[in-house]
Design a protein around this nucleic acid. Sequence first.
DNA 1: GACAATTTTTGACGATCCGTCAATTATGCA
DNA 2: TGCATAATTGACGGATCGTCAAAAATTGTC
Lengths: 242, 242
Amino acid sequence: MSTLTRKQREIQNREQMLLGIARTMLVEQGFSHLGLDRLAEATEYSKGTIYQHFSSKEDLVAALAIQSCEKRIDLFSRAAEYSGSTRERAFALVAADELFAERHSHFFRCELIIHMANLDEKASPERRERLQALEQEILGIVLKPITEAVQNRDLVLTGNWTPEKVVFGLFCFAMGGHFGLQNYSSILKQIGVTSRAPHLFDNVNIFLDGLNWKQLSSDFDYSKTTKVVMQEVLADDDNVGN
Amino acid sequence: MSTLTRKQREIQNREQMLLGIARTMLVEQGFSHLGLDRLAEATEYSKGTIYQHFSSKEDLVAALAIQSCEKRIDLFSRAAEYSGSTRERAFALVAADELFAERHSHFFRCELIIHMANLDEKASPERRERLQALEQEILGIVLKPITEAVQNRDLVLTGNWTPEKVVFGLFCFAMGGHFGLQNYSSILKQIGVTSRAPHLFDNVNIFLDGLNWKQLSSDFDYSKTTKVVMQEVLADDDNVGN
DNA sequence: GACAATTTTTGACGATCCGTCAATTATGCA
DNA sequence: TGCATAATTGACGGATCGTCAAAAATTGTC
């Protein structure tokens, strides 16, 4: 059965190759310029073969988004293991997100695109479900330090605040910043916003200070945390799929 | 020349009609299902006529985004005239944004779509420039109460904070929330986020408290502000273009 | 009102792209 | 080797974007 295995591995490798080239085309030329005929020509395979891997053009982009999520989970998991206070760990996750969006913007861009195009209807059910499962996994990772902070009273939530609501706040900062810089760059440039990182970290600090999550940024230097995390996480950050 | 004027007005009316129907099709069926042949049939005009109004499909969507910005500016301008503290006025703008995204989500969706598709290359230069000018106008409106707050020391900015940076923070909350609810609704539902408004207002309050913008939310009930603004602004909020 | 010049409208057409499928080629197995 | 199964191909149908020469409508003039 070694021949069969060889063939199967060959097919798997081909899928990675297809995705790699497709990602390049998608990022450099945009969704509308990503043509399957062109992809077929670029990869020296026929269109029929490509359709054996992906049920539609949208399904292909979904596969790219899945890759992106997997890569993100990889980074997040490592950041979550940072040893420090709950707020430091939350901050580590924000740093990981920032790192991801910066170093792997092409991956992230696939996620944005797949969520804007009507993926829900056109991607294959398998990939749709897998993508959703991965996103839920990410949610769980981010939720963890927050619930822990509530348990050990680093963070005391009042009123109608819940850990999930805190996640939503962080999600808005991250997503709003990413989306803004990708799509409103010209207008943001005019207000001096050209790079996410410093603003994102300051925003998050103000937000967490507002929630009174100990230690406050006045009592602890979180820029060190981010720096250490960035370097640790970045250390063995492999550029899979170029 | 009254006949010429009549003809010209006829053409202008036709453009509004085209945009109205196109917006419905875009919102109900998505960008990919917005076909110019179908639009031609629905409006009982020919495709050639449509191309006399819009240089391309993307240009049409740009025109929709322009309408959206104009409507937004209308709401923002009125919210900006709210008489109250600087922070109340900033809050009024957030409320206007929320109102806009809620009551005119179809308009807003056009803005998102046009910024995701490669508008930059395919829309007509005129509409591209107009859209950018409108966005800059919006920026100016939002910037005003912040700079005023800095001037009268309701808000004291320390470190590397600037009014523009505060705008960016608010922008992230608003955009991140909108984008999230439009595109990540299934995952957000699982954490109990189904409606923007309450979370958005709470988030903004925490953020502005973190910036120490007087009066703090513990000393003033901003929910009243939003309620009043929503009703005042909503009062003569005409649903132009259905 | 008739007729010519100009503007507007039309829809057929070429080009492009997605997804299919019958025919062809390659592979596994006895 | 020879047959059965699996993989690959590219031509094709259907749909859509944008163009353009021909047709229709409008304007201006006598």
